[in-house]
Write a protein that binds this DNA or RNA. Structure first.
Length: 192
DNA sequence: TTAGGGTTACAA
DNA sequence: TTGTAACCCTAA
């Protein structure tokens, strides 16, 4: 509103993730007070980090910005926040690096919400999530689908049928050349 | 203090 | 113009 928007830095995001990992979702004040994160998040209020967490997990948006924003918000909220998902994502970029992929069944959130939010509507989002997972895993030989699935599970609580979604997406990414598929000696499909 | 809904700024 | 992220407001 009258103040210029202050974009979140990767450090702040990492601190937030770590804070959530440690204290759990919803304990914004506690996170803010944690000496380990307070310095990084000193310019953020509990509301700021709450909103940021909401955005970070609102993987998507639907069709109209406004509605989307709302949808995203709802998703976030509807999303299970029971556990601490935590950890930090390390992010990355990848457009040509190695990544591997393998998927495993996961369970948690309602597939509808997750699906509509991540897979269906935000392709790019899911792409980014996968890329992010690969980069974060940073495995020299590429990441297995399982690893990626686990990573996404921890970060985004996908639905139980996420397996299909991820498989399809990986196929799409390998087809488009964004990811390289590698067959390892373990007979697993990898992507680099 | 937190969650949820809504608004505004900014980038593509 | 549209989508996304940051920020504000209010209720519980």
């Amino acid at each position: 509103m009258g103040v210029p928007k202050q974009r979140w830095t990767s450090e702040e995001e990492a601190a937030l993730r770590a804070g959530v990992a440690r204290h759990g979702v919803g304990n914004w004040r506690t996170i803010l007070k944690d000496p380990e994160f307070s310095s990084t998040l000193r310019y953020r209020s509990n509301v700021d980090i709450k909103d940021k967490w909401r955005n970070m997990n609102a993987i998507v948006t639907t069709s109209g910005s406004r509605d989307k924003a709302k949808a995203a918000v709802k998703k976030t909220k509807a999303a299970p926040k029971n556990h601490d998902h935590s950890m930090a994502i390390s992010t990355v970029a990848s457009d040509g690096e190695d990544e591997i992929v393998d998927v495993k069944p996961i369970a948690s959130v309602s597939s509808e919400a997750w699906n509509s939010s991540i897979s269906k509507r935000s392709h790019s989002r899911l792409d980014n999530i996968i890329m992010e997972a690969v980069k974060s895993l940073n495995e020299p030989t590429g990441s297995h689908r399982t690893s990626i699935a686990n990573y996404i599970e921890e970060q985004y609580w996908p639905p139980s049928d996420f397996d299909h979604i991820l498989s399809a997406k990986l196929r799409e990414l390998t087809t488009s050349g964004k990811l390289i598929k590698v067959i390892s000696i373990f007979n697993q499909t990898k992507t680099l």
